[in-house]
């Protein structure tokens, strides 16, 4: 146990790396957010814009928050995985092994043998989406309630889908649009584009609807408690008593449950869409053909 003191220092540093970005986000939120009376449903703040030739590039609250959450997740991963031993001894390593095993099982079940290398990607999407949604519990602007962030992820998934379809051959990719008959080609093209759009809107809509409903109910409870307890003297009369309790229960559903469920759904759909467009038999046939051609040339 000669390393123990060094490990403790590393542990402490990594825990600081996990917590510090979130604290930074809270501080930035407190410093920059304008004071608002009542309930406001607003989008992400634009901190500053970087001038670009065609369009200016805005750096928004949701971007900054998602970077900070990424750093925080990186810290968590490093904390869980540093100083591993061949046989699991610490709780930390057990947890890390559990997460990795579960992710690999999930990917294997949904995507098959060929795509088993996708486990880190799926794990990353799952963790980023879930932590982004859960970050609203800290009071910071959750990046998942910005359409652009999720649209970015969905476009990434769309590129992957197209890439793995093209791996089966360009002819196969073009031909897959004319299935089952050539008359349906426009609908197939629309359906192809609809995949990322629907993934984006599903995730965004669920998170935003939760926050809109929470905001409406919080506003309603404030008015209701001012009606009921308004006759009490002084500050007690102004204090919204009815706001205690019920919003917390709603937040447990809308922020915690719905956020985690949507993260899971997003990763499931990613897996199904990527592996669904890919035909393994055609891919292997094409690969074998290429190999035999190369051997003939040689």
């Amino acid at each position: 146990m000669a390393h123990s003191s060094r490990f403790k220092i590393t542990d402490a540093l990594l825990i600081v790396m996990m917590i510090l970005p979130l604290l930074t986000a809270i501080v930035i939120k407190i410093l920059t957010n304008p004071e608002s009376e009542g309930i406001a449903i607003s989008g992400a703040l634009v901190y500053f814009t970087i001038p670009m030739p065609k369009w200016d590039l805005p750096i928004t609250e949701s971007q900054v928050n998602s970077w900070l959450i990424m750093i925080s997740i990186l810290g968590l991963c490093l904390y869980l995985t540093h100083g591993l031993s061949p046989k699991a001894e610490t709780k930390r390593q057990h947890l890390a092994e559990y997460i990795v095993t579960k992710t690999e099982e999930l990917v294997h079940e949904n995507m098959g043998e060929f795509f088993s290398g996708f486990a880190p990607f799926i794990g990353a999407i799952l963790a980023l989406s879930a932590f982004s949604s859960l970050s609203s519990l800290l009071g910071i602007f959750p990046p998942t309630s910005d359409l652009n962030v999720i649209a970015g992820w969905a476009i990434l998934v769309f590129i992957l889908i197209t890439y793995y379809k093209l791996k089966c051959g360009f002819g196969y990719y073009i031909k897959s649009f004319t299935e089952p008959i050539a008359l349906l080609t426009p609908f197939n093209i629309i359906g192809e584009i609809a995949t990322p759009v629907s993934m984006t809107f599903r995730h965004y809509g669920n998170i935003v609807s939760g926050s809109v409903i929470s905001a409406l109910i919080a506003a309603g409870l404030r008015i209701l408690s001012s009606w009921i307890f308004g006759w009490l003297p002084g500050a007690i009369g102004e204090f919204p008593f009815l706001r205690i309790g019920l919003p917390a229960i709603l937040s447990a559903y809308f922020d915690v449950f719905s956020g985690c469920l949507q993260a899971f759904i997003f990763s499931i759909l990613t897996m199904i869409n990527i592996s669904g467009g890919f035909d393994f038999d055609i891919y292997t046939a094409r690969k074998n053909k290429k190999l035999s051609k190369k051997q003939k040339v040689n």
Partner: peptide, 13 residues
């Protein structure tokens, strides 16, 4: 349920 919600969420968005 989360998948079936999609059409409603489209309307909401």
């Amino acid at each position: 349920c989360a998948l079936a919600e999609t059409t409603g969420v489209y309307g909401f968005v």
